[in-house]
C-alpha cells in the first residue's frame, strides 16, 4: 500500500532512500524551476567549473514554465512539463547533488541509473493541472536567466505540493513502461 510522505527541502539521503515508487508525497520548502534551456546552461556551468545559481545538494528541480502572475498574485498556472526532454542533462545534475526532480511522465535509462547510483528520485505531478497546483506555491522569485522568460530559474516556496514517486532510488517505477 502506498503511503503519503511529507517532504521538507533540502532532501537528505535517508529521506530519499525511504521513498518507494508509487508513494504519494507532499513537498514543502524551497524548490527551483528549470526547463530545457536552463538545464543546458546549468550543465555548461558544471562542465566549465562555474558557480551554479543555487545549491544543488539536496535540491528539488521542478520542470515548469509558469504563466505570468496577475497583479497581486504570486504566480500563474504552474503544472509540470514533460520530464523526458531533460534526460540529456539530469545525470550531471544528480551527480552533483540533486536529490529529486519534479515533472511528468517517463525517464530514460541513463537517468534511472543515475537515480540508483547517486540516490535520487523522480517525482510526478499531475500534468495539465496548472491551476490546481499553483495553489501550493506561496512565493516565487526569479534567481537566474531572466532572459529566458517563462523558462527562467525561479525559487519557489511550496506548501504540501502533491506528487507521486514515479521512479525511486532502487530502480523501481510506477509506470508499466
Amino acid at each position: 500500500m502506498a503511503t503519503i510522505n511529507k517532504l521538507q527541502t533540502p532532501l537528505t539521503a535517508s529521506v530519499v532512500h525511504s521513498l518507494k515508487a508509487g508513494d504519494e508525497v507532499l513537498v514543502s520548502g524551497l524548490i527551483y524551476t528549470a526547463r530545457d534551456m536552463a538545464h543546458k546552461r546549468l550543465c555548461q556551468l558544471i562542465d566549465t567549473g562555474g558557480n551554479l545559481p543555487f545549491e544543488l545538494e539536496g535540491a528539488i528541480i521542478y520542470y515548469v514554465g509558469p504563466t505570468p502572475a496577475r497583479p497581486g498574485r504570486v504566480i500563474g498556472a504552474a503544472g509540470p512539463t514533460t520530464s523526458l526532454r531533460m534526460d540529456p542533462f539530469s545525470p550531471a545534475l544528480i551527480a552533483n547533488g540533486l536529490k529529486a526532480m519534479l515533472g511528468k511522465g517517463y525517464r530514460g535509462e541513463k537517468v534511472r541509473e543515475a537515480l540508483k547510483k547517486y540516490g535520487a528520485v523522480h517525482l510526478s505531478a499531475i500534468g495539465g493541472a496548472g491551476a490546481l497546483l499553483s495553489k501550493h506555491i506561496v512565493a516565487a522569485q526569479i534567481i537566474a536567466y531572466e532572459d529566458l522568460g517563462a523558462e527562467a530559474i525561479r525559487k519557489l516556496q511550496v506548501v504540501d505540493f502533491p506528487a507521486i514517486v514515479a521512479y525511486d532510488s532502487y530502480g523501481n517505477s510506477v509506470y508499466k513502461k
Binding site: 504563466t67 496577475r70 498556472a77 503544472g79 512539463t81 495539465g128 496548472g130 491551476a131 499553483s134
Partner: peptide, 8 residues
C-alpha cells in the same frame, strides 16, 4: 482566473 495549464 488561473489558466487551466501553464502551457497556454
Amino acid at each position: 482566473e488561473i489558466p487551466l495549464c501553464q502551457d497556454t
